[in-house]
Amino acid sequence: MNNIHEYISSGILELYVYGALSAAESAEVSKVLKKYPEVRQEVEEIENSLLKLSSSVAPYNPEHVLEKLKLKLSSGNPKVIPIEKPSTNWAAYLGWAASLLFLVGLFALFNKNNDLRANLQALQAEKAQMESQIASSRDNAEKTTKLLNVLRDKNIIRIPLAGQAVAPDAYATAYWDKNTNTTYIDAQDLPTPPRGMVYQVWSLKMTPLTPTSIGLLDKFEDDANKIFELDNANLSEGFGITLEPEGGSETPTLERLYTLGTISS
């Protein structure tokens, strides 16, 4: 230590007394303090002033607490072992036995309660699952009924859409309800679109050939029936389905024309 005065006036000793330093820093100061009496004296003076400051905050001198403490010290530190006649205290034994029994009972009840709670939770989860199954079945049934009605409706025009060069095996059917301006696309026989791609349905006018998008076959994989309902207020003369990047395109990409069909009037 070159300059002990600099060390003292740095303020580190005050932090040391507060206990505001890290363990390593404190240990370091302890070493210096051992070596230099001036540092030790400085620390004692700091301590003394803090002792007085905190004492002045005390509401009163808690002298009487010492009496309570002394009682505790002697009871917790038995030096004299009293020799007593060993007597059997049946009431005490009975008490202990009863409380032990009670504890065991309590524990058993606690366990039982936990089991029941776990069972209840499992049942509730099962119930929720079944409810959602019922709801989705009902949903499906409603959809199917609706589709059946569409198919049976005499006003509906059925247009088969045949597979084209890119996908000769592909096949789809359009059902067009002119009264409600709705077109249903049955896409059962279209291959699942690759990731990031989507089928887009076009209403076609023949002379000149003008395609108008009437919608996307969104969530293709999620739809079990593969029947899609699209709004179509156009005077369509045919329908085509192309594969387009997600979100659809402005104009159809003819190289990826999957199916096509015209209305035979």
Binding site: S54, S55, P59, N61, E63, L66
Partner: peptide, 9 residues
């Protein structure tokens, strides 16, 4: 004790 009581208080 007085100092400690002050801190606690």
């Amino acid at each position: 004790s007085v100092s400690t009581y002050g801190i606690i208080f």
